[in-house]
Design a protein around this nucleic acid. Structure first.
Lengths: 232, 232
DNA sequence: ACCCGTCTTAATCTTTCATTAATCTTTTTG
DNA sequence: CAAAAAGATTAATGAAAGATTAAGACGGGT
């Protein structure tokens, strides 16, 4: 269920800081999802939409910078800011060059963090309720979720609502299986024989729309679901 | 005539820092106007338009905070950021509560400043407002919102209030979806079956008025709303 | 009271889109 | 390898949304 609260994604491996911030931000009226590494973060981004991501730079497995790059690929217009103990100038510049909207040095003052988050959000284009606009890069295509446009080579095609929603699900789980069940529950809220048939029709249509770039395809996993595969 | 350079207003009483920054920013391709106090700053704002103001907090006569308040009164949507040696938490919060887009603590690193300026500018809501704030360019047409005139080729047509308001909404969200709901709430304050029908009638009328330029059109997104599309 | 310009309502026609159906192809499994 | 299940593809259908045109209502100004 959607609320009109601002949704924040906090990616912080340290337990103490992560807990402190998620509690504090929650108390300040934000909806906070706290995850502890980049993989989880990407999974979350695939599943739901956020207004802003807060990324720790120093993390095991995938650092904040690498994560930011992946975010740019998956959810083109999700703004993000960095938290870091590393205040080396070169890092600050790298952060901004990746498209960060802010770069905060630890120790973090929670009140200042809230002030900065609000400053950032107030500068964002006000989003229509319900139509939270996320864009996705899909090979040489770009999906403009807000305007329901599939852009290719300076040209575009307007998608229907269902087509858009389906492609958004696939694109946000790029190279990962989306089960029938999951898709059907998200799009139809139900999972029966007929919806399943309907899904097939939409898959065919999307394949058709996407055929100009042969580095991407929608694969079927028999009896399981679909994968939007993109060769990098 | 306007240039396409970003125009910065730097308000800094210290000679050495002011000189350093204005030189550096100028070198980086910005158009910089450096003034040394709030009075001068307000005079400049009255005379020309800026994209961003950079305010020192500690200044004689009028401090940065007071200046920011005056700026909000004069040029409502001029974004500003603070430079300051005072990094007291209460000051930082005050800065943001005044509407600052950023708050930088001295010593300033010039490269970081540039990175932050660019981050801010890239996140600004692109406003298609003309000089007056009520004038819009729509392909080869021009909408004079104040006088409710739609100008084309030295000729014009007077629009009704509703027509003007609707076209203003569409024009200020050029190439972006305006949902039914949004439009209806803005124009009718309500969203029911009949208003929706009424909206269709106005859309038809606007399409008719705008048909002389085929690089623009009002697109429908089924079940969602309308987009004023302008080919570049 | 009566225009006149403006907005709303109504009536009618057109288009769009999700669904269903029908048919063909591929994959799995015994 | 053959039958059954799952998937792919194309086309048909009907309901809802949108477009268009015309007629009615409303309100300010003279």
């Amino acid at each position: 269920m959607k609320t009109n609260k601002t949704r924040l994604l906090l990616v912080e491996d340290e337990d103490s800081l992560g807990y402190l911030l998620s509690e504090y931000l929650g108390m300040k009226g934000f909806m906070v999802k706290w995850v502890k590494d980049g993989e989880e973060a990407l999974a979350e981004i695939g599943q739901s939409t956020f207004d802003l991501a807060i990324l720790d730079v120093m993390m095991p497995k995938m650092d904040g910078f690498a994560l930011a790059e992946r975010i740019r690929l998956n959810a083109v217009d999700l703004p993000f800011l960095f938290l870091t103990a590393r205040s080396l100038k070169v890092d600050v510049l790298k952060g901004f060059s990746l498209g960060a909207v802010d770069y905060l040095k630890k120790p973090i003052d929670e009140e200042e963090l809230v002030a900065r988050i609000n400053a950032i959000l107030s500068r964002l284009v006000p989003k229509d309720l319900g139509a939270s606009g996320t864009s996705f890069r899909i090979g040489r295509y770009e999906l403009d979720g807000k305007n329901q446009k599939l852009i290719f080579n300076n040209d575009y095609r307007t998608l229907t609502t269902r087509e858009t929603e389906l492609l958004k699900i696939l694109a946000s789980n790029k190279n990962n299986l989306c089960t029938h069940k999951n898709i059907l529950l998200q799009l139809w809220g139900d999972n029966d024989y007929f919806n399943r048939k309907s899904l097939n029709v939409f898959i065919t249509r999307l394949r058709n729309y996407l055929k100009a770039d042969d580095t991407i395809k929608i694969e079927n996993v028999h009896g399981k679901g679909f994968i939007l595969r993109v060769k990098e």
